[in-house]
């Protein structure tokens, strides 16, 4: 691997007087699927939001594709290839499924490419095709998660950030969502996956970071983390 796709150095984030992220280093190489696990309130979501410019960092540096992102406005990140599937999905409830997908391609202007990618998303998620004319607010939670992921893919991201894709979903739906995540990874999309379900996340990822109260406390291959006794006790419930 020549140069990492994402390099985060000593990133600090503070808001409302709280230091949510206290100087972390992260690196994600091209084509990797990296999991970021940790307890509630460890700073995982804050980290993701900072990576896409929704929160401005208090210190440190973020290099994406070799370029610093500090000067980008938040709406410019997606054009650079960085997109977040937010916690709670954030679909546009009163847009149709098809319109939600088109919103994912908002920064693109290649009509044939967009049409092709919509078909690709419908191929990954046949349920969305059946419901393409339906308002997104009427979909089930699992369908909304599929839509949120499909919408993010529509931007043809270089790095896809996923925040708690399993949240609030039935186990069988979670399995389905993770199957799709593996399929997308197999297509070569680089991903950073934040998950409370640490076992599932580490079984899916190549590498993992463990975050505790704003700091990265462990970084290793997913297999090693799964075998780590301390991790098993703290996060895997074994």
């Amino acid at each position: 691997m020549s140069e990492a796709l994402l390099q985060v150095k000593d990133l600090k984030v503070a808001y409302g007087g709280i230091h949510a992220v206290k100087g972390i280093d992260l690196e994600i190489g091209h084509g990797e699927l990296v999991a970021l696990i940790g307890a509630n309130g460890a700073g995982k979501t804050t980290t993701l939001k900072t990576l896409v410019g929704m929160i401005k960092p208090a210190g440190g540096e973020i290099l994406f594709d070799g370029q610093p992102t500090a000067r980008l406005a938040s709406y410019q990140y997606v054009g650079r290839g960085l997109v977040l599937v937010p916690e709670g999905r954030g679909v546009f409830p009163r847009l149709t499924v098809a319109e939600n997908l088109l919103m994912g391609a908002h920064v693109r202007n290649d009509k044939p490419g967009i049409a092709h990618d919509i078909e690709r998303v419908y191929h990954l998620f046949p349920r969305l095709k059946e419901r393409q004319a339906q308002l997104a607010g009427t979909l089930s939670g699992g369908e909304q998660q599929m839509l949120a992921i499909g919408r993010a893919i529509m931007s043809r991201p270089k790095l896809l950030l996923l925040d708690e894709p399993s949240m609030g979903l039935a186990p069988i739906i979670v399995q389905k969502i993770f199957e799709i995540i593996r399929m997308i990874a197999a297509e070569g999309v680089t991903m950073l996956l934040v998950e409370q379900n640490a076992k599932l996340a580490l079984e899916t990822a190549n590498r993992g970071y463990v975050m505790e109260s704003g700091r990265i406390t462990l970084a290793d291959s997913a297999a090693n983390l799964l075998a780590n006794e301390a991790i098993q006790k703290a996060y895997l419930g074994e």
Binding site: V52, S74, Y75, Y77, P86, G90, F92, M103, V107
Partner: peptide
Amino acid sequence: QNPDVAGLMGVN
């Protein structure tokens, strides 16, 4: 409907 997510999608 959701200005934050619209921003994520590249809407200014």
